[in-house]
Design a protein around this nucleic acid. Structure first.
Lengths: 198, 198
DNA sequence: TACTGTTTTAGTACCAGGTTCTAAAATGAT
DNA sequence: ATCATTTTAGAACCTGGTACTAAAACAGTA
């Protein structure tokens, strides 16, 4: 019943964790050379520590990166436009999914909520070119994974058929307002150059 | 010497490429079921097409993502952070590609430019939780396909270790400033609830 | 010293998901 | 019918393991 001097094993476990953390592509055989123990010991250690085999580790990394690549696009129009009266008002719905949140907190990244509002504001303007010139935005409460954001946009003013339009957007989750923004959108029928905007 | 009607094979190759592209985690055996040919045929096809085996594909994906994660543990950021002094300043680079522009005009959608700035502002704050509370932004000129946006962010004020931080971001293409934004970021060490923000 | 419990090592059988190679069968065009 | 291409079959072998059994080495203690 060895009660003292049991460090070597725990120590080896620490080393093992460290080695695998800084090089997850190491095989058990390579580990035997670094830790000077038999391959069976390495495998027992991995079991005790719950570290999967090399192939499983690679698979997990590959799947993880695949998910990320999939999730990237802040696509064309973010959110589904369910109602649109050009130059007047519009509504879009956007569900917060895994790829839109900070993984640690499950709170949506601000730029997705912004993107939904911005896309809707731009879509509302019935012109060949409509670009955001400026915006004043406020995130009123965090939006969490799984919540549905309903953005409502209203055109507040129009300057003839060229120049700026003001669009106000309110985004709700249920009854609660989570985001509010005032957008200034440049608009143009297309023939001439405009000096600012997106 | 079959010269005409050689399509079935080429056709199968096209299908194979497509299937593997949309699910790189498919095994040869699974492919036999989808393509109704023997496993040897699948393997010949992969050889001709230069497609590596499943494990090799996973390994490559894992290595790729590992390299990315290594270079910047800030995979939650849109744009590559090339310089970061926490709580002080940071720089990120983001190249406008096909998927970021309006297809008709080749002008970048505003929310991508915003996302780069927002992500950088959030990354700058050295706290467990950092969420955008509000922002005042201005798009100064259109950004076009292929242009590189260089965002520079500076922390302007900090309120102790909880509360708001003000971050100013300037985005340039070459010498020209294309975007400017003032962000208010909520920060918290994590233990308690905050009433607004992203 | 002998006994006991832990830790380490050894060895075998087996697995997935292949590669490599040889060879036979099916298909199609002339 | 013949000949090239294409497809299928099968066996041997590979990596990097798992699962299991069993022996050896080590440590502490009665």
């Amino acid at each position: 019943m060895p009660l003292i001097e049991r460090l070597p094993k725990k120590q080896r476990h620490q080393q093992l964790l460290k080695i695998i953390e800084e090089n997850p592509f190491v095989t058990d055989r390579e580990l035997t050379r670094e830790l000077k123990v038999s391959i069976q010991t390495i495998r027992l250690d991995r079991m005790e520590l719950g570290i999967p085999e090399l192939r499983e580790r690679m698979k997990q990394m590959a799947e993880h990166s695949y998910d990320q690549v999939r999730s990237l696009p802040l696509d064309e129009v973010v959110g589904d436009v369910v109602d649109l009266q050009l130059d007047k008002s519009g509504i879009s719905i956007f569900e917060i999914r895994e790829e839109h949140v900070f993984s640690r907190t499950h709170i949506a990244r601000g730029h997705y909520v912004f993107a939904q509002a911005n896309s809707l504001a731009v879509a509302l303007i019935n012109d060949e070119i409509a670009l955001t010139a400026s915006a004043d935005i406020r995130f009123l409460r965090q939006v969490h994974l799984g919540e549905k954001c309903i953005a409502k946009a209203y055109v507040r003013s129009m300057n003839g058929h060229r120049g700026k339009a003001k669009v106000e957007v309110f985004t709700y989750v249920g009854e609660e307002m989570v985001f509010q923004g005032n957008f200034v959108i440049y608009r143009s029928t297309g023939e001439d150059h405009i000096e600012g905007g997106m």
